[in-house]
Write a protein that binds this DNA or RNA. Sequence first.
DNA 1: ATGGTTGACTTTCAA
Length: 261
Amino acid sequence: MKIASFNINGIKARIEALTSWLAGADVDVVVLQEIKSVDEGFPRDHFSDLGWNVETHGQKGFNGVAILSRLPLEDVSRGLPGDDSDEQARYIEATVMGDQAVRLAGLYLPNGNPVPGPKYDYKLAWMERLRKRAAELLDLEMPVVMLGDYNVIPEARDAAKPEKWVDDALFLPQSRAALRAIQWQGWTDAIRIREPWAQRGPFTFWDYQAGAWNRDDGIRIDHLLLSPQAADLMVETGVDRDARAGDKPSDHVPVWVRLAA
DNA sequence: ATGGTTGACTTTCAA
């Protein structure tokens, strides 16, 4: 089972680039972030006609997550538990029915800028809710993949120019500590362990501004965290960097893992 | 220090 995450930065603007990537990526299931669409505005028929099961959790204008799957999805749940007053659409879970059942949590973690301020407070509160949900997912003792746009640069080597990010919500010590607190529950960072000795990168996001892509001025903020039962099934992982060079690209590229499931 | 770009949606915010 090949599982991917892709922040598409607007489904309406990205329908062609996403469709083209899906045609060549050989993925069984992909979680999407920043669909920037309400559920009714998502081009569901376009993807279901191509053989995808479609589950969305959208909102008007911003945020929004979705799952496209060639395999059946069961027990879909929308929204991150822990705050009934939170109306931002950033989290969706489902169980993918492959040779083995795999629980997926697709997430779009708050950006948190500017710092300080209510947006950063919201980011840290959201991460604490995610930590609690992640512990529950580990208690399932089944293959779980928690993946998406985490909006956190884990380490200095995950940025081309870490000095640019020292005051940014994506790289502040509190943000990185909150991510580590989740990882240390027992999650495996699939992209990092592919080349644990890497001095720099791989990157998953390049800003549209200031020629960041052409200068390879990127950061790694899209992550796949695997429960121990999922990590035991991992056979391959990667970053589809070429997607950033296509026509009308998103500012993020897909990240993926293949499980023997 | 500033600026640079894109998307959704109206004119400005979010990233």
